[in-house]
Nucleic acid binder design. Structure first.
Lengths: 222, 222
DNA sequence: CCATAACCGGACCGTCCGGTCCGCTTGTGC
DNA sequence: GCACAAGCGGACCGGACGGTCCGGTTATGG
């Protein structure tokens, strides 16, 4: 562990930032499958430079995605102080959906097994934590049904994000429309109990772990 | 147009079926990204044979996916005759989610631009049509809020499918839980109107078309 | 201003993919 | 049972991808 790293040379620092910017742009526009070559090209550096700063493509992705998620977490923390706890939740969901709409990388990162990446995973956990806080506050004020958890809400919202990415350029209201439906679900009286139980972050870890944490051989499975 | 095609030779027929079966299995288990080599291998035929029966991988995918979608359409038609129109809708949604759970190919086909494929597109349109019928019937009986359309429901359900694929092996109830939330949304009184308007199949076409329908030259577009 | 280490960048590598080709085999009609 | 088309299957192709390497360049400290 060389936690002690001497400062980068000026040009190195500059190139690193350029790469991060280029990747952010391209991921936003076209998703995570853009090639490293194109990223390096837009950053006006060679591929070698890219791989020196980010040993693998996944490292680069993680750096970018974590940045975006952290912004979202920050926005969530702001909303914790909002006067209306119920509206804060829905405002936050709108934010979550909106950002996934203009940042394909975000949406893809949460969909894929990329959640197995330590950095992304912890950023995601923070996000869930913030939403959980918002949610509990709203539930304490009886603005949202008491029997749903943060992951329940996030899952329900995931579909909205997908719908929005496909349709936003046809009907920009589609996201709001879907969110209105989500609101209906969350504010409905809980007369019939939901089946099952709310998932936890540990559940998520367990769900992600099997296939992804060990990228190497899973040969035993005949 | 050679709509007149002489019957396949016996071995050819047999191999075609083997390929379809193998592809169905593999797509189910591991999604659409399995390689054609592996499919041919499991079918005990050579790669050449695969490509003679299905000129491109997409053709093979379409053949498999359309089969699955048609089953789903058939199930929907059954439910049109069900006594309780409201329950029929939710039963159908459960079916839709359930099948996407055990058939990754289905889920991926609807997510990707694969909807641009003519066969898949028309099968999907049929599915939307059936759901629309079910929905309208339930709405006529005031079992479901009148301001949602089939595509609204399908979008809302898409997230559930994703959640389910990730979590089903941890908590098999998760799908039901999410569906209960969807039910809340759809049965809630429509006191606050939904923003926007219900999407139509034409909207979907327009949303899909730009990048996908013309795999060849899309050069004019800056 | 020079020595040198850090850094640059593009040529290069191995791998994997979908798709093609062609010499060989096999089912089929006469 | 024979002739021959239909079918077979694996070697092969082109190209894209992520990742490596090394000869040349440039910032930097003495």
């Amino acid at each position: 562990m060389d936690s002690e790293e001497r400062p980068l040379r000026a040009d190195a620092e500059r190139n690193r930032k350029r790469l991060l910017d280029a990747a952010t742009q391209l991921f936003r526009e076209r998703g995570l499958e853009v090639g490293v070559g194109e990223i390096a090209e837009r950053a006006h550096v060679g591929r070698g430079t890219l791989f020196r700063n980010f040993p693998t493509k996944e490292d680069l992705i993680a750096a970018v995605v974590v940045e975006r998620m952290s912004e979202l977490v920050a926005r969530g923390r702001e909303l914790i102080a909002a006067p209306d706890a119920g509206e804060a939740v829905f405002e936050y969901l709108g934010e979550v959906v909106g950002r996934q709409q203009l940042d394909r990388s975000l949406a893809e990162a949460v969909a894929d097994e990329l959640l197995a990446n330590p950095g992304i995973r912890s950023a995601h956990a923070e996000l869930v934590g913030v939403l959980d806080t918002l949610l509990k506050r709203a539930q304490a004020e009886h603005k949202i049904r008491p029997d749903v958890g943060a992951l329940d809400v996030l899952m329900l919202t995931k579909g909205v994000c997908q719908a929005v990415s496909a349709f936003a350029h046809i009907d920009p209201e589609i996201g709001n429309r879907q969110l209105d439906l989500v609101r209906s679900a969350l504010t409905a009286p809980a007369d019939a109990p939901l089946r099952g139980r709310a998932a936890t972050l540990e559940d998520l870890d367990r769900a992600i772990a099997p296939g992804a944490t060990r990228p190497e051989r899973a040969a035993a499975q005949g």
